[in-house]
Amino acid sequence: MFAWLRNFFSRLFGGKDQIALGIYGPPNTGKTTLANVISEEFTGEKLGNVSEIPHETREVKRKEKVTLETDGYKITMNLLDMPGISTKVDFEEFMDYGMGEEEAKVRSKEATRGVVEAINWLDNVDVVIVVLDSTKKPYNQVNVTILGNLEAKDIPIILVANKIDLAEANPEAIRETFPQYSFAKISAKEEENINELYSEIIESTK
């Protein structure tokens, strides 16, 4: 990294040599899929497991010293894949996926702890990607709660409309509902428009 750019980021983020980038959002929006795409491209390694069962990620997953390069810029970051944020975790939801009651209750407790851990990490992140499912209506209690908490802490937000590869996707609904944030529409699964997101990450750290 050029010395002037390194010094710029150091001043911007209180003397840190790298930033912490947190990936937040409700369960099953594609956060870990996106984290894996970023981690694999710049480190050659995945960050976490992906599952159709909600709350597969139940504790913060971290990949350190991920150096992102795009548009002639370079930035080093700690990449943080956060547990899905929910206002309520119901063990019966997991039973719908074939889990027994005892296993579902254990997963529910772990998921609840994960939500708390993700919220506590807000004091340690510099930039946040909020991943929303573009096949679902964007205005709901969970999304408003996530964005409200981030705004309260004055953390730069990149809003990502994921799953644009699906026929029912409507990413513009997310943009129109929350027009005040930096925005990218992607398919993490198909790795579509990922460079657009990288550009937004760089812009949010300038």
Rank of each mutant, 00 (worst) to 15 (best):
A118Q: 02
I119Q: 01
I119W: 02
N120E: 15
W121M: 14
W121D: 03
W121N: 10
W121Q: 11
L122Q: 04
D123L: 11
D123W: 13
D123A: 12
D123N: 14
N124Y: 14
N124G: 06
V125L: 10
V125D: 03
V125I: 15
D126L: 07
D126W: 09
D126K: 10
D126S: 08
V127H: 05
V127M: 06
V128F: 07
V128Q: 04
V128H: 03
V128L: 06
V128G: 07
I129W: 02
I129M: 14
I129C: 05
V130I: 11
V130W: 04
V130H: 03
V130S: 04
V130C: 07
V131H: 05
L132N: 05
L132A: 11
D133Y: 06
D133A: 08
S134Y: 08
S134E: 09
T135N: 04
T135C: 04
T135Y: 04
K136Y: 08
K136W: 00
K136D: 15
K136T: 13
K137P: 07
K137F: 15
K137E: 15
P138F: 12
P138I: 10
Y139L: 15
Y139P: 01
Y139Q: 12
N140P: 02
N140L: 11
N140Y: 05
Q141S: 13
V142F: 00
V142Y: 03
V142N: 12
N143C: 08
N143L: 05
N143F: 10
N143R: 09
V144A: 14
V144E: 15
T145K: 05
T145W: 03
T145Q: 10
I146Y: 03
I146C: 06
L147E: 08
G148M: 06
G148A: 10
N149R: 14
N149E: 14
N149P: 00
N149G: 13
N149W: 13
L150S: 04
L150I: 13
L150K: 09
L150N: 09
E151D: 15
E151T: 10
E151S: 12
K153W: 06
K153A: 09
D154K: 15
D154C: 03
I155L: 06
I155A: 00
I157V: 15
I157Y: 04
I157A: 07
I157D: 02
I158Y: 07
V160I: 12
V160M: 00
A161D: 02
A161H: 10
N162L: 02
N162G: 05
N162T: 06
K163A: 01
K163Q: 12
I164R: 00
I164Q: 04
D165G: 05
D165I: 08
D165Y: 09
D165N: 07
D165M: 08
L166H: 11
A167M: 12
A167V: 15
A167H: 09
A167R: 13
E168H: 00
E168Q: 14
E168I: 05
A169E: 02
P171F: 11
P171K: 08
P171H: 10
E172H: 06
E172S: 13
A173L: 14
A173Q: 13
